[in-house]
Every structure is written in structure tokens, then in C-alpha cells.
Design a protein around this nucleic acid. Sequence first.
RNA 1: GCCUGGGUAGUUCAGUGGUAGAACGCUUCCAUGGUAAGGAAGAAGUCGAGGGUUCAAUUCCCUCUCCAGGCUCCA
Length: 599
Amino acid sequence: MKKQKVIEKIKNDPLFALRHSAEHIMHMAVEDLFQGAKKVMGPPIESGFYGDFDYNGKITEEDFLSIEQKMQDIVDANLAIVVREASYKELKEIFQDNPYKWEMIEDLEKNKEKATVCEIGEKGSKYYDIDLCAGNHVARTSDVKAFKLLSVAGAYWRGSEQNKMLTRIYATAFDSKEGLDEYLNILEEQKKRDHRNINKNLEVFALFEEVGPGLPIWLPNGMIIREELERWGKETEEKWGYVRVSSPFMAKRKIFELSGHVPYFEDEMYKVTVPGEQEDEYFIKPMNCPFHHMVFKSKPRTYKELPLKIAEYGTVARYENRGAINGILRPRIFCQNDAHVYCSKEQAIDVFVEIVNLHKYYYDMLGLNNYHIELNLRDPTKMNKYHGNEEMWQKAEKITREALDKSGIKYTVVNEGAAHYGPKMDFKIKSAIGTEYGISTNQIDLYSPERFGLTYIDKDGKEKPVIVQHRAPLGSNERFIGFLMEHFSGNLPVWLCPIQVEIIPIGDKHEKYAQRVKEALKAKHIRVEVNDKAETMQSKIRDAQVKKIPYMLIVGDKEVEKNEVSVRLRTEENLGSKPLEEVVLKVEEMYLTKSLNLW
RNA sequence: GCCUGGGUAGUUCAGUGGUAGAACGCUUCCAUGGUAAGGAAGAAGUCGAGGGUUCAAUUCCCUCUCCAGGCUCCA
């Protein structure tokens, strides 16, 4: 679990104890209302808590009201909450018919850890509960001032697909009604910022049942964003010494066997069958790496060519779990800002630092500053997930850590999530709403060079293996743009806006002038449209605001007369009337410099 | 893939065992406006798909499909 850090943070939350107690109260209420429901466990989480139950019937959101009422009853009863130590023997007696608790007790016993219980109320009274529990609590149930159940979900016991699916209830609790209301408001706001909601106004992509899940169609507006972003990526890579290639969107099984993907990912690869041709199986490519390795191999390489940076905007297909699909943040086909850098052992660290710097450049330009690296190492409990020998892994890890230290970027280490061929670094960015995204990834790979026989002739005339670094600073167009939509809440930087300027003629008679303004902007390649609907100016302004168009140029009698336009920004600032030329130049400047400001 | 809930006009949603409604949007007309919604009329739906129960199904039941929130996963 990547949860250690999060848990630390949660434990420092002043509401931790209160939520923990609220969770016990919820368990009591559920066991009271649903015969046979067994409490399993439930910790406080960021901004709330959840509780898991084993219950053979259904608990749905319709039951929330009665559960909440029962909880309120327990809160009103003002029961004492006491935590004390307990013997394994006592515990096993208490939980003799609860296999989950039993399992936890046995774990404690095995590790010789102290066991504590939490008792709420007095034995024999209307409400009484005793539970295996290690944690802080508030003193009395009445300290839980405000709570709300939020959703039901299924969750596997101990997080494993092999285990039984339990019923999980998500909820939250606060020390005041105001705190709760504020939080519920934030949830509402987050929902509005969901890229799928923003998409309704921005018209970036469209999904259809007939096309298939996870297969978005890019609409004209989306395509503008995408092409601006790609152009920037390509220009930047050119400056940073990358060369571009293009690889076929499908290939024979053989190459994916060579890359080592088949044993781990065959189930998630789209197979292509060719009628009448049985000998070869083809897959739609799920990644670009093997092809770039082949580019490297297309002729003998020497030290003079290194580092060789091979880039491609490559579209890949992965049959993602149905439940993992989410708008364009997690589709089944996506286009990566991909490249592989081939270098010598000696160059590896400098190359890595350069890649980190490239990330920094991109993120700075977009004004994203809340990011860090997560270094994903092998999960010691799942060693069968990884290729290569121990020595290779140790070496890769050593280089990676050295490189990270030298780059000076902040990073956290997680013992999980490595790629099958090597340690992985994920760039995690926190969006403006606080959601964290794995937006880009970077990997130092010693495995592929060995598999593919990727070598170069060094100065001393000897053939040596290269080191490969996988990188995709702009992630995939899909996820990156979805992220940007949410981060900016739809208010994209001017250069990425599908429509940069909306011209709003006040009346019919101003339309001719509006067209002239339009032509002046178009001459500078600014994306502009005239709203010539039979509507009031106010209504046209509203339309533009909703579409998050950065500049609204209002033209009426006064402007026509002076050859000016009245400038309103989507920030609702009214800059007043300005000469047309000045406005054109300003917008052009903001566009070309990729400014994050509007004026 | 698993758990829970859902699918009604382009969108957000109401509603019903006797084949449907609102708001916004769209089209047309009127209004010619000064910084977030002027007025009127009109078009628009195989009530996700298939099967079953019924005299009758959008409504009840089953299967499939798609969507949402979780769990698991993300080369």
C-alpha cells in the first residue's frame, strides 16, 4: 500500500480521534439495525472515515437515514469511550464468531503486539460495544458533533481480489456543523471541477456507447488543445536534442515476448486477428518502448551518438479494467508524449537530471508547482511480478537514487509499484482542487538493453550495454489535458484555449465592425468567433463566461466610432475601451509567450 | 473484473402498468441592448438493447450493454 505517508498525515489531523470514534458509532448502529452484519474494520481517512462490514444482505444509500438516526441516538446517549489493554484470550472469546477479528488477533499474537480494545457504553445497557482497536478516541460519544454518511461501496477483505467482497460505508465527521457543511460544499465544488463536467461546456471530447468504453473521440475544441500541446512538446524536444520516429500501431507477438510484456500483460493487450493467416498473432501496441529499442538497433551505435534520444507521440491501447476507466483521465486508447533515452552508464545520472529538468521546464511554464517524485521499488511480497536478476535491480536502484539526489527534486520512496523491468519514478502533481495525479513517469531500465541486446562501441573499441531511460513528461494527451481541465477549472491558459476571443456586438448594426475585428485577430492566428445570435449583450457575455473564453470584446456605437473594442476578461475584470491594434497585439503576446496571465 | 446505484429530449432531471413532462440548449420571429440569462412561438424522445410476465410494459422480472461511486489494477 502506498499509504504510510497518508496515514502519518491523517494521524496528525486533529479530527482523527473524533472520526475514529464516529466510525465505531457507525459500526454499532449498523450491527444494531442489520441482523448478522459483522463489523470488520474501518479507519479514519483523509477528510472522513469508512467502515467495512460482512453482511449477506444489502445495505444501500436508502438505509443511510436510519443508520444516521441510530448513530445520533448513540451520540445523544453521551456514552463513555474507554480504551484498555486486553489479553488475546479475552479477545478471542469476545470475537469467537467474527473470523475477521479472529484473524487480526492472531496476527497480533504472532507479532507479539499489544492488543487493546475500545469499549463504548456500559455492558448490559441499551448501547454497548467492545471492539478490537488501536487508536485514539474522544472521551464521549457526544463529542462527535456532526457526521454524515456519504456512499456505499464494495471492498475486498485485506484489499485482495481473492478475498470476500465486503460492504464499505464511507462517511465523515466533524467537531461542528459548520465544519461538516464546509466540507460538503467542497465536495460539491470538486464535482463541478470534474473534467467530465467541465467538458460539457468546453466540448473537448465525446464518448459513445457505440464506439466503446474508454474510447473517447476528440472534438474540434479538444483537438486544438491537443495539437497546441503536441506542438509545444515537439518544439521543446527538438531544442533538447531529441529525434522523432513513428512506429506501427500493431506488431507481432514476438516483439512483445522479447520485451517481456507478454507474460504480465497479455490479458490487457488487444489482439488483432488476420483472416486466413494463422501463423502470427498481432497485438495493438500497448507501449512504444520495443519499437524505439528497434530504432536503436537499426544500426551499430557508437559512444559518439550517445545519449540518443528517440521520441514519438505514440498512440497505445491497453485493455484497462472496466471499473478503472474514467473520462479521458483513464481511457483505453491514449497518445503518449513518449521518448527513450539511450546512454552509457557514465551518462546515466546526468541524463536523468536533464529529464527532471525537462519536467521542471514544462511544469513551470504551466504554473504547476505542487509536485514531487514517488520512487516505486519492488513490492517484497510480490517478487514474481518482476523480471531480471537481483544484481540488476540493485544496480538500477542505486543509479536511480543517486540521480534523484543529484537532481535535488523532492521524492518519497514506496515499496510497491515498480515496473516489471525496473524501479519507476512517478511524477505526482496536486491539482488546484487537491487531487493528486500520477501525470508522468520516468524509469531507468537495465533490463531491456539486455533483452534486446542494445549496445554501443565505446572509445576503447569494446561493445558495452546501454542504459535506457523511459520518460513522458507530458504523460498522455488524454490524462494531461484531463488534468489541466480540472486544475484550471476549465480556465485554460490563453494559448491552450480552443476559442481565445469572443466578439460580442451589442446590436445587429455592429456586426459588420465585429467581423472586421475578427479578421484583424485572425490575421495573427488568434482563435476568435463572433457571437451574432439574436440575444442581448448580457446573454452573450454569459455564454462566453460559461465557455471560459478568456477575452470578450464588446463592440457597440462607441467602439465602432473610435475603432476600439471594450475588453472584458473571463476573470470578470472590465478593462474598458481600448484601441483595436493594442488589443490584438496584447492577445497575440499572451498567446505566443504561453502566458498564464490574461493581460 | 468485483460490490452498490443508475440509464426518460442535445444537457440536467421529474413522472407513470393504459406508449410522456419541466428547465436550459436548439430553430424562427419580435426586441437593438453597455459587462453573467429580454420576450414569444416551434422542432425535438424506439423512456439504453433483447427476452419474459400481462389484455396492455417506459414502469414489474431476467440477461446484456453503457454510466457513476468504491475495491483491485495502471507496462
